[in-house]
Design a protein around this nucleic acid. Structure first.
Lengths: 154, 154
DNA sequence: TTCTTTGCAAATCGTTTGCAGCATG
DNA sequence: CATGCTGCAAACGATTTGCAAAGAA
């Protein structure tokens, strides 16, 4: 994400107004690598601004996303996630618990194609689906238990 | 997607039952490159089975997705899309009209990493975001019109 | 007969919208 | 003081769930 000052300047340049809510949201986002949903962010910020409404969080996030200062993506859990890191990079997602990490290079770091199938390309979202260490362990334990229930397993 | 017979055999092997609805859905999916949503598929199949319910379509699709015979992904339009092509490949999506194509090789055809950040990797979803030819034209026309409204544009 | 699947209606859940009051520029 | 923003409540739309009836095995 660009420095907060740049973003605020941009808001003002577009005729927008700078409110304490937006500043708080922008600051919370800066450097956040947890890929939060609007609701998660809202929950966190409530401690600082108890009156902050979820609607306002959505408004601020979608605004940033439209100017390209924030990446917005769906990760297969039915919710929209936001990522202040707008450089091309991949995400690893657990298909069970939906825990999510940035994938280290080289994944997703290839340069963007300019044009594909006649489409002008702006951005890329790359998700790697798998099991996180915890869920992999649970899954292993479960399948072991299942084998115990199947006498034919010999 | 695997041949229909294999899929049906698998259903039976898991204690499932083979119904006309499921067979119809599997057949419709086979070779489909349009990345339909459950609702789109439902709409199409209604001509053959007017009584087919959306619930049933969801059940069949989610079942196939769980066995890995169908890829399930969200494309930024708030809906879940299904793709019978389960080989790793990328999709090009129009951010305006949500039209979608498969990206031709080499995009997204790199082999899957086995493990990333401790996660065991099963699959990948790669989305290229951009403007389709039609929307690019519309967008160009719109920005031209906007410039006309701004006398300072000189 | 047994147990899964179907199909309807209602519930759920994340996100958006309408609108009145408030605060920024 | 004009306009954009906030925050509440209500609307929305995609997906899921509960349950009784139907139909595979």
């Amino acid at each position: 994400m660009r420095p907060i000052e740049d973003i605020l300047a941009n808001v003002r340049a577009r005729g927008g107004k700078i409110t304490p809510q937006r500043v708080l949201i922008y600051q919370a986002l800066d450097g956040d690598t947890s890929h939060p949903t609007a609701e998660q962010l809202h929950e966190r910020l409530r401690s600082w601004l108890p009156h902050l409404s979820l609607t306002t969080v959505y408004a601020a996030l979608n605004d940033l996303a439209e100017t390209g200062d924030l990446r917005r993506f769906e990760a297969g859990d039915g919710q929209v996630h936001y990522d202040p890191d707008t450089l091309p990079h991949a995400h690893v997602v657990c298909v069970r618990c939906h825990r999510m990490h940035d994938a280290p290079p080289p994944h997703g770091r290839q340069p963007l194609p300019r044009e594909v199938e006649g489409f002008v390309i702006f951005g890329r979202t790359e998700l790697l689906h798998g099991l996180c260490p915890e869920c992999a362990e649970t899954a292993a334990a479960e399948s072991a238990a299942l084998e115990g229930d199947e006498p034919d397993g010999t």
